Simulated scan of single mutants.
Amino acid sequence: MSTTAHPVPEVGQEAAPRTFPPMTRTDYVTYQGASGDFHPLHHDEVYARSVGFPSVFSVGMLQAGMLATYVTDWLGVEEIRRFKVRFVDQMWPDDELTCKARVSDITTAPDGGRRVTLELTALRGAGTPALLGTAEFVLDPAA
């Protein structure tokens, strides 16, 4: 376990929401360069329109990374044990992403720590879900 103390939240507790700045095509291309996913749907406007989309859209793992950053900023990167997401909707240029987390369960982990399960939501600027997911952390019971 980490030596960094994180307070053990209570069931039902919600983290303060975090809204990331509007996403840009440059964000998409920067992420594509880091991930190696160069599918033209995410950077080529002409191609995206030719196959029926109104514009390019973000690689879903970019939003997943933002959501993971949000929850690990709250409960600690060294404490995370599981992170799962389901992609619900595309993120378009100029969309903001608002991340939310709620504690859904707390149990005792095998090592005596507290296993904290979160329900996660990442909303597009219009308020519709882009991602839904869960995360599990193990926190020191003395924290």
Rank of each mutant, 00 (worst) to 15 (best):
D140Y: 06
R114E: 14
F137C: 02
P40N: 11
F57T: 01
V29L: 14
Q32S: 15
P21G: 09
T72Q: 07
T4P: 00
T128L: 15
V46Q: 13
S55K: 03
V116F: 00
M66L: 15
G125F: 07
C99V: 01
E45T: 06
A122T: 05
F38I: 01
V85L: 08
A48D: 03
P54R: 15
A130V: 02
G133R: 01
G127D: 07
S50W: 02
D27T: 07
E78S: 04
Y28D: 03
A34Q: 12
G65Y: 02
F38C: 04
L132C: 13
V71M: 07
P141W: 08
E136H: 04
Y31H: 11
R86E: 09
L120K: 05
R124A: 10
G12L: 05
H42M: 08
V11H: 06
S35R: 07
V71E: 14
G33M: 08
F87N: 07
K84G: 14
G76E: 02
V11L: 08
T19M: 03
D140C: 10
G52C: 03
E96Q: 15
S35Q: 11
Y47R: 04
T108R: 15
M1W: 06
E96W: 10
G52E: 07
Y70N: 02
G36E: 09
S35A: 09
F53N: 04
A68G: 12
Q32I: 04
Y47K: 03
T128Y: 12
V51C: 07
V103P: 01
R25S: 10
T98H: 07
T19A: 10
A142R: 15
A48I: 06
T30G: 06
M1I: 12
K100N: 10
V51Q: 04
D94F: 11
E14D: 11
A142L: 05
L67R: 01
M23Q: 14
D44T: 01
D73L: 08
I106D: 09
P9K: 08
P17N: 08
P40G: 11
T3H: 14
A34N: 09
Q32Y: 05
G12T: 15
R82E: 15
H6L: 12
R114M: 04
D37L: 06
T117V: 05
D95A: 13
L139F: 00
T30M: 11
A5D: 00
F20V: 00
D73A: 10
E96D: 14
G52S: 05
Q32C: 15
P7H: 14
A135N: 09
V46I: 09
E45I: 00
S2R: 11
R49K: 12
V88Y: 06
Y70W: 03
A68K: 10
L118K: 07
D37P: 00
G113H: 03
R114C: 07
T108N: 10
D27I: 08
R102I: 05
G76F: 04
T19Q: 06
V29Y: 13
D95F: 06
V29D: 03
V11Q: 15
F53W: 05
A15K: 05
H42F: 09
R25N: 11
A143T: 02
V77D: 12
T108I: 03
Q13I: 00
Q32K: 05
T26A: 13
A64N: 12
L139G: 05
L75T: 06
Q13L: 05
F53V: 01
